[in-house]
Computed example of a mutant assay.
Amino acid sequence: MSRSTIAPTPAPDRALVFGRPLRVLAWLSFLAEVIIIGTGGAVRLTGSGLGCTEWPLCTPESLVPLPEQGFHGIVEFGNRTMTGVVGVLALAVLFLTLAAVAGRALVLRAVWFALGGIVAGAVAFAATAAAGLGAFAFSAALLASVVAAAVDSVRRAPRRRDLVVLAWLVLAGVMAQAVVGGLAVLTDLNAFVVGFHYTSSLLLVCVTAAYLERLRAPEGPRERAVPRGVAVLTHVTGLALAATIFFGVLTTGSGPHSGDDDIVRTGFDATVLAHVHSWPGYILLALVVVLLAVAWARSLPTRTWMLVLLLAIGVQIVVGVIQARTGLPELLVGTHMVLAALSAATYTVVVLRLKRPVAG
């Protein structure tokens, strides 16, 4: 067999150049996902949830809030504007990721998919506008094109498919989030839709954190870097964290901060839920203390981030107790929401560090 017929061997992972622009934008994307939780919380806590009464327009006649909508309109539209910032950052990270792992060709394919999605969206909009569903039909068609483009990119990426998948997840998630936000407005801030909106935002914070962690890690097979028992207990800790966040979302959804003064919560007893929310929270704290002690005693690679997780959860508990005893002041409730997202992001990094690259 001649040398010319032999397929080229991919260069080692270190030959891939993830330049400073990509790393900076990836961090900005993470920070923007955290910030939008804060701005979304501000919308809810200032009673501005219906500051814009329509979606995607702010009013039936205007994209931006009118003077008569006052402060609430500005707050709500500010959060919508932040969604645009998050989307632009997610798109930039995606294109730079595709360019780094596969070159310009894969970026151009993604652009063609996007153009096709816009055309399909325009057709869907025209077909459903009379029924008042044009915006949702357009968004659905565009999101479908993003999913198709993501599948195509992952299949064609010669390496670092983990980063490609994560970058596409962020972009698709941001788009889906915009639609969920619209549903929240159109359902008059239904507590379950609003709760799902927050939970989805929290998951996007975790995905951007995972991207940052994987960006610094080399490509290739990975092996467990901690004892099996520690890995199992870490995943159990994740269940406790998920339960804490779930009951926290239900508690907030049943509390006084409904997002608009004219909306009154009914259903669950917020006082009872506040106690139920605390139970997995204290279990979570105990599990993290145990894992941290083991990690430091055995010099495990999770020890630093486990310490960060302990600090985040400790502050979270203190804020939660204070807000419960002081009548749920808006600033503390908003802080509690952001801390929950940061805790989940930190836990994501801990989980990813349970494994390490196989020594070559």
Rank of each mutant, 00 (worst) to 15 (best):
M1I: 09
S2W: 04
R3H: 11
R3P: 03
T5A: 13
T9I: 14
T9Y: 08
P12Y: 14
R14T: 06
R14W: 07
A15N: 04
L16K: 05
V17H: 07
V17D: 13
G19I: 06
L25I: 01
A26P: 05
L28T: 01
A32F: 00
T39Y: 03
R44D: 06
L50W: 01
G51M: 05
C52R: 08
C52F: 00
C52Y: 01
E54N: 15
W55K: 13
C58Y: 01
P60S: 14
E61T: 15
E68D: 13
F71V: 14
E76C: 10
V88T: 10
A90Y: 11
V93G: 09
V93T: 06
G103T: 14
L106M: 13
R109T: 10
V111F: 14
I118C: 05
V119Y: 01
A120P: 07
A122K: 04
V123Y: 05
A124F: 03
A126Y: 12
A129D: 14
G132C: 07
A141G: 12
L142K: 04
A144C: 06
S145F: 00
S145P: 00
V147K: 02
A148R: 03
A149V: 03
A150L: 06
R155N: 13
P158C: 08
P158I: 12
R161F: 02
D162R: 07
D162E: 15
V164Q: 02
A172H: 04
G173S: 13
M175Y: 13
Q177I: 02
A178R: 08
L183W: 12
L183T: 06
A184Y: 04
N190P: 01
A191R: 09
V193A: 13
H197N: 11
V205I: 11
C206S: 15
V207K: 02
A210C: 09
A217H: 06
A217I: 03
G220Q: 07
R222F: 05
R224S: 11
V226W: 00
P227Q: 05
R228L: 13
V230H: 03
V232E: 09
T234K: 00
A240N: 02
A240I: 01
L241T: 05
A242G: 15
T244W: 10
T244L: 09
I245V: 15
G248K: 01
G248E: 03
V249P: 01
V249N: 07
L250D: 05
T251I: 06
S254N: 08
H257L: 08
D261Q: 11
T266I: 06
D269K: 10
H275V: 14
V276H: 01
V276S: 00
W279I: 11
I283F: 10
I283A: 12
A293F: 11
A295Q: 08
W296P: 01
A297Q: 09
S299E: 10
M306C: 02
M306G: 08
V308K: 06
L309H: 04
L310Q: 08
A312D: 09
A312Q: 02
I317D: 02
V318S: 07
V319S: 06
G320V: 00
I322H: 14
Q323R: 10
G327I: 04
L328T: 10
L332F: 09
L332Q: 10
V333G: 13
T335L: 14
H336S: 01
A341V: 12
L342K: 03
A344M: 11
T346I: 04
V351S: 00
V351N: 02
L352S: 09
